[in-house]
Simulated assay, not measured.
Amino acid sequence: MRIETFVALLVLNFLALPVYAEDIEVNPMFGDNSNQLAIHGGESFRSDGFEKLHFGAISYSQPDTFFRLPARNNIEVGAYKGDGSLAEFDVNFFGFSKDVALLSGTNSYLTLGLGAYIKDKKADRISSKFTFGEKLAVGYRFDNGINVELFARHFSNGGLTEKNSGQNFAGLTVGYSF
């Protein structure tokens, strides 16, 4: 799938979500629950398309608010693993992030997230162990507590070092709220 197609699908989903920002009774990412475990998986993409650099992570989250918008605080641990010549980009990471539901309904949501991460080594594309991460996701929480999200993520060191071409991933998250 081309990046333009992925972005178009995300935009169409955003337009279909009802909006509310005040008097949040139930966080759409959690329902009546206060904990969430999630598994994230994706594939790297560059300007010329997808490449065989895989993304995987596990996160633990708790509900929060951000200027009266539903939000969640996350602790994440994960890795990128490449096939063949992309193995030079293999990295493990640990970090904290916050996702804010900019648009949301009872069970559906569009989130924007920002986080800070520590990697186990410097890689050629991001030559620092400290990394920022941004995430855009559209999700749906089923009544049984299962969440499904489509995401696009970007990791970068914000120009802290000379080498900083960043790393982009698109993928799927499956979570369980309890």
Score class of each variant (00 low, 15 high):
residue 100 V to R: 00
residue 31 G to V: 02
residue 61 S to Y: 01
residue 156 S to V: 08
residue 166 G to W: 06
residue 28 P to R: 02
residue 116 A to P: 04
residue 22 E to G: 07
residue 99 D to Q: 05
residue 34 S to Q: 13
residue 3 I to A: 06
residue 65 T to P: 00
residue 172 L to M: 05
residue 131 T to Y: 00
residue 24 I to S: 00
residue 156 S to F: 03
residue 138 V to I: 12
residue 144 N to R: 02
residue 1 M to W: 10
residue 28 P to K: 01
residue 169 F to Y: 15
residue 45 F to V: 05
residue 75 I to N: 06
residue 47 S to L: 14
residue 124 D to K: 13
residue 15 L to E: 09
residue 5 T to A: 10
residue 156 S to K: 04
residue 147 N to E: 07
residue 49 G to M: 08
residue 124 D to R: 14
residue 18 P to F: 07
residue 148 V to I: 15
residue 151 F to E: 06
residue 50 F to Y: 15
residue 3 I to M: 02
residue 51 E to Y: 15
residue 25 E to V: 09
residue 79 A to T: 15
residue 91 V to A: 12
residue 162 E to H: 09
residue 96 F to G: 09
residue 69 L to R: 02
residue 81 K to A: 11
residue 131 T to P: 03
residue 149 E to L: 02
residue 4 E to G: 09
residue 53 L to S: 06
residue 87 A to T: 12
residue 31 G to K: 00
residue 85 S to M: 08
residue 59 S to T: 11
residue 27 N to C: 03
residue 71 A to R: 01
residue 49 G to I: 07
residue 60 Y to N: 06
residue 112 L to A: 13
residue 78 G to A: 03
residue 4 E to T: 11
residue 150 L to Q: 12
residue 103 L to R: 04
residue 177 S to D: 03
residue 22 E to N: 11
residue 58 I to D: 05
residue 106 T to G: 01
residue 66 F to H: 09
residue 134 E to Y: 07
residue 75 I to E: 05
residue 62 Q to P: 01
residue 26 V to Q: 12
residue 106 T to C: 08
residue 86 L to H: 05
residue 166 G to S: 05
residue 151 F to L: 14
residue 78 G to I: 09
residue 60 Y to H: 14
